[in-house]
Design a protein around this nucleic acid. Structure first.
Lengths: 334, 334
DNA sequence: TTGAAAGCGCTAACAC
DNA sequence: GTGTTAGCGCTTTCAA
């Protein structure tokens, strides 16, 4: 692999000094018209490209944002990523992505590879394992190193940094009210993600709405998708239930299936709402009414918070941006 | 943002020279036991992290792979990305991602930001617009700059670089044969992606299988999803058709809907196969039989080809890896 | 065993 | 208008 051409090479070729070349290429007014043109021609003909690494070393800024997401196969995260990439590009930044795959260890390693100068700042959503074991030392390290960090969706209260979340509490609250208002009496909350912050907030929103209307709370917390049927069966058999609010979209679709297999007609006998407005919801039959979190917006907000901090001189208070949800009404609710 | 601690700072603190610190931290045998321990302690207590940019400048290698994908919201690409990230991590590389969003311009810009030393090599799938306008100058530039590049899925024959593709021809050939073998007589090929290489290869595979069995070829090439119904209607009304092979999964699901609305029972009256084994296929009703491309494998292969080239001294012939497809049988075929 | 010095490619203050 | 020089943080050869 032949070495790339450098400023020095160009200087030799043009018979001038390195700094003259540098200035000429950067359109410095110090340099004379003909010299500049000549140098630019030479650079062009030799396919000169400035070395970005050297520039970063000099400028102490990389114009790169490090992103750590727990799982790219979850559509929600790829949508957020889309928003992040769009906004980063708009603001002149590139993104580097690491996947934690919900593992604490991988999250720690990703942080380590980011805080050595390779990125100007970090955007991340906390891995499930980290939310369970509550070992936040890598985040404290990031703060200590003064690397700006923005957490989105799955955030940690005790870490002081900018945050972008969905109003999960309010989303669940609104969805529960929606169900009550269309006449449902017995709303069950199916929480497949009771382990993570997001799931807990949704649960609280549900509980709050139910209690406000003096309804009885009924929560199921299966630990895995394959436990959903087992948990739901006794409810369908022995209790009256006319609505299910599920903490994600996939469990909502599974709940629809179980309901149907037990003779329920959707939405006549039972109404179902899920969280996350993804492909599955759209293409399920019947199509699923969901609480949309506006994943792209979350990504954009996160970038915008981070870049704000990067480019403002003074270090201001941390900001917690809350993105509002809304209900996308489809055919799984009356 | 307080400046990070450097080797120089540590040298001052320890009262030794910079190079001693460097060697001590890198466990050089040149350095004495006690000095090394002392220096490491100081480094530890001051939270020293070596600056990766400076290292890259010195070593001329970043251990970063640049990835350009046309669209992250297409599940296929996020699966490939998953494979890329896994394999890259395993081999000690990070990935930087740019999205071309199918735009030629953005693809060119992404290439530009990569070939300035920020990455060791590039993995990409060509944007639709580039495949249409056939302007490949940015790829030639990459070759000229000796930046190793691997193209996957959507590749360009005339560019000499490593490639990883799915055997699209064979996939369509096998799927068509599958339909013929279960007794279908009139198989229609619905090609929503006739603009891109992948779509053309699938079409050829279909044609080849049909001709081999002396069946009449019937191809539809809608330019957008919203034209599918219009294109299919006359076929359903006026011709006999008992099978549809669609070039992606979404058009297959739409075709199922149109078929059903026209009184066809699936799979009794008509069998349908799509390409891409994604969420939609799995959750469609009936679930969709598909040709799976093993997206993750494609990603892994691409990384492995690239790293091979990066780490081997000699520059060998370019390699075109072909990942085999297989048919995932579900309920949309008899 | 430790240190001095050069250099990776670039920028910019300062001199000429 | 052009060149000299120092320096970003690190590694590494060579000298002490």
């Amino acid at each position: 692999m032949q070495p790339k051409i450098t400023l020095k090479d160009l200087a030799n070729l043009a018979g001038v000094s390195i700094s003259t070349v540098s200035k000429a290429l950067n359109d410095s007014p110090e340099i004379g018209e003909k010299t500049r043109v000549k140098i630019k021609e030479i650079a062009e003909s030799y396919n000169y490209v400035p070395n970005n690494i050297a520039r970063s070393l000099k400028s102490k800024s990389t114009k790169i944002i490090g992103v750590i997401i727990p799982a790219i196969l979850l559509e929600f995260f790829s949508k957020v990523l889309y928003g992040i990439e769009m906004e980063a590009t708009r603001l002149g930044y590139k993104i580097v992505i690491c996947l934690s795959n919900e593992s604490h260890q991988k999250e720690v390693e990703s942080i380590d590879t980011f805080i050595n100068g390779s990125v100007d700042g970090i955007i991340l959503s906390v891995a499930e394992e980290t939310q369970k074991n509550k070992d936040y030392s890598h985040f404290y390290k990031t703060l200590k190193y003064n690397v700006p960090m923005v957490m989105f969706d799955r955030v940690i209260d005790e870490i002081t940094c900018d945050k972008v979340t969905v109003d999960d509490f309010e989303g669940a609250f609104k969805a529960t009210n929606f169900l009550l208002e269309i006449g449902c009496e017995n709303v069950v909350f199916l929480n497949i993600i009771s382990n993570i912050s997001v799931g807990q907030l949704r649960e609280q929103g549900y509980v709050s709405a139910m209690q406000k209307s003096d309804k009885e709370v009924k929560i199921l917390t299966p630990q895995h998708y394959n436990e959903i049927e087992k948990e739901l069966l006794p409810v369908f058999k022995n209790e009256k239930v006319d609505a299910i609010l599920a903490a994600d979209e996939y469990s909502a679709v599974l709940a629809m299936n179980v309901a149907r297999m037990n003779g329920y007609d959707i939405p006549k006998d039972i109404s179902i709402i899920g969280f996350t407005n993804g492909l599955i919801s759209e293409h399920a039959i019947p199509s699923l009414t969901v609480v949309s979190q506006h994943a792209e917006n979350i990504g954009k907000q996160a970038v915008s918070s981070l870049v704000n901090r990067l480019e403002s001189e003074t270090s201001t208070e941390t900001i917690h941006t809350v993105v509002k949800t809304n209900i996308v009404e489809r055919n799984s609710t009356r």
